[in-house]
Write a protein that binds this DNA or RNA. Structure first.
Length: 253
DNA sequence: GTTGAGCGTT
């Protein structure tokens, strides 16, 4: 749903999408329009919203008609405080095939930093030396997971969306050997249940001493369920069934 | 009523 494109979103190939991050969850396209429109011709503004709550996800897409204007907006609006929140503006990628678009149309000045450190990162400015380290490996990931958890929890089918997102992460950890086929876990799990401090001998003694249920102490001799033949395993039933066949079942005539 | 380091639909 485009704020301005009632008949539909304008062709992306003719527009340059900017990703506006860190905006407040209450910021709307109308709030961003005047800000971005001042720096260039805004073709369309779109703010993804939660399908359930309909709330803003905290970021928006602003489409400019010209790249230079978009670039200018990025440079000017990046780090701008909107609604009491510092927003981040950077070139956006549209879908998994955005790379082609970037190469064909949008020419990112810094594809590596994605405009993150292009000039001045508001967060970097701050004295996050000590916090940066801690949040960079745990806090950030966990926080993301938590926020995303909302969507994945109710809309588990959207896990694809999250999965794709994770894919973008540096493949450094991936090379660590994240084989879904051979997960090393479960090891402690079973070990834990067996971690009881009782030896096999103890088990035997316990069973005898306990003697809680007579049935359990002599299951081999007197099984609780007398060898009642299951209907399906019993061949007789089969014959019976065959006997019931209409063909055989037609004594008359 | 809230969170947050993230990429979109008619």
């Amino acid at each position: 749903m485009s704020r301005f494109g009632r008949s539909g979103p304008p062709p992306i190939r003719d527009t340059y999408s900017l990703l506006v991050l860190n905006i407040t969850f209450r910021t709307t396209a109308d709030d961003l329009f005047p800000l971005f429109d001042k720096y260039g011709e805004v073709v369309d503004i779109y703010i993804p919203r939660d399908r359930r709550t309909g709330d803003s996800r905290g970021f928006a897409f602003v489409r400019y008609k010209y790249e230079d204007e978009a670039q200018k907006a990025v440079d000017r609006l990046d780090g701008r405080v909107v609604d009491g929140r510092e927003i981040m503006v950077q070139f956006a990628k549209y879908g998994p095939n955005a790379e082609r678009i970037n190469k064909g149309r949008i020419v990112e000045p810094l594809p590596r930093s994605r405009g993150r450190s292009r000039s001045h990162s508001p967060r970097r400015w701050y004295r996050d030396d000590y916090r940066d380290d801690y949040r960079d490996r745990d806090y950030r990931r966990r926080s993301r997971s938590r926020s995303r958890d909302r969507y994945s929890r109710d809309s588990y089918r959207e896990r694809d969306y999250r999965h794709r997102s994770r894919s973008r992460s540096p493949d450094g950890y991936k090379k660590h050997g994240r084989d879904s086929l051979s997960p090393p876990r479960r090891s402690p799990s079973r070990s834990r249940s067996r971690s009881r401090s009782y030896s096999p001998d103890d088990n035997k003694r316990r069973g005898r001493d306990s003697s809680a249920s007579p049935a359990s102490r002599s299951p081999s001799r007197t099984p609780p369920c007398k060898t009642s033949p299951s209907p399906e395993r019993s061949p007789v039933r089969r014959e019976h069934n065959d006997d019931r066949s209409p063909r055989s079942r037609s004594p008359s005539t």
